[in-house]
């Protein structure tokens, strides 16, 4: 709590500054795409959202592994707190993608592999959150949710590749490639600024939620102690 209390503000400020700078580059200082026109600017929000949607699941699964193996109580709290944040990023990636898809593909939604697997990822998040919400006792809920998150992390690649096998329309990845990024530096700068900024935002929100969760558990423990007397 003491550590997170100290770094909370710097992280928040860093995310604010980076996102502000990224927005300036994205909306004003970067060129429009020669094919996509001005709507390419949606990408600067859409891509970080999608990355963090997946990153959130990795944080959740990693924390769940630590929670199951080492039984560290903080890992439980981290996994539980990461889920809603990741779900929101995942949802925003879908929404911004739909807004971009309307002028580009002529439709809000297509049953393309990436869209479908992001949607399924959102369902996995929602199922995980629902499991936490329905089991009342936190230790028991934590174990069950951790098992679910780990099984989900094994299944996410299987689901992803089955969906890719099924149908593909979305453009392939163009930033993280073996032969270097295939994207102009004028567009890469705002994209990276936004990505790092939103990552700081993710970490900040995660710490805020974890602090809230820890306080909630302390209150619960105090109430239980008071009830026993």
């Amino acid at each position: 709590m003491a550590f997170s209390g100290q770094v909370l503000w710097p992280f928040g400020v860093a995310s604010f500054v980076l996102i502000a700078a990224g927005l300036w580059f994205a909306l004003i200082a970067s060129p429009a795409d020669y094919q996509q026109g001005e709507s390419v600017r949606i990408m600067y929000v859409h891509v970080p959202m999608a990355w963090l949607g997946m990153f959130g699941y990795m944080v959740m699964a990693g924390a769940s592994l630590v929670a199951l193996v080492f039984r560290h109580p903080l890992a439980d709290v981290a996994a539980k707190s990461a889920a809603p944040i990741g779900a929101v990023f995942c949802f925003l990636a879908l929404v911004t993608g739909a807004i971009w898809g309307k002028p580009m593909w002529g439709t809000w939604w297509v049953w393309d592999a990436r869209l479908t697997s992001m949607l399924i990822l959102l369902f996995l998040y929602l199922g995980y959150i629902a499991l936490w919400a329905t089991i009342e006792e936190p230790v028991r809920a934590g174990r069950a949710a951790a098992v679910l998150a780990l099984i989900g992390s094994i299944n996410v690649p299987i689901i992803h590749y089955s969906v890719v096998w099924w149908n593909t329309l979305h453009q392939p990845a163009s930033v993280f490639r073996v032969d270097g990024p295939q994207i102009a530096s004028a567009m890469l700068t705002p994209l990276m600024l936004m990505a790092v900024g939103f990552t700081f935002l993710f970490v900040t929100l995660l710490m805020v939620r974890m602090r809230g969760e820890i306080l909630k558990r302390r209150v619960r423990a105090l109430l239980l102690a008071a009830a026993e007397v």
Partner: peptide
């Protein structure tokens, strides 16, 4: 897996279905 996760819940069937359906997708596709 879904059945075991929700075993202690009174109305676990619905939640179990929601948890399990994403995992059924590869089976359906293939």
């Amino acid at each position: 897996i879904g059945a075991a996760l929700t075993v202690s819940l009174r109305r676990g069937g619905l939640l179990a279905s929601l948890l399990v359906i994403p995992f059924y997708i590869p089976v359906l596709i293939f």
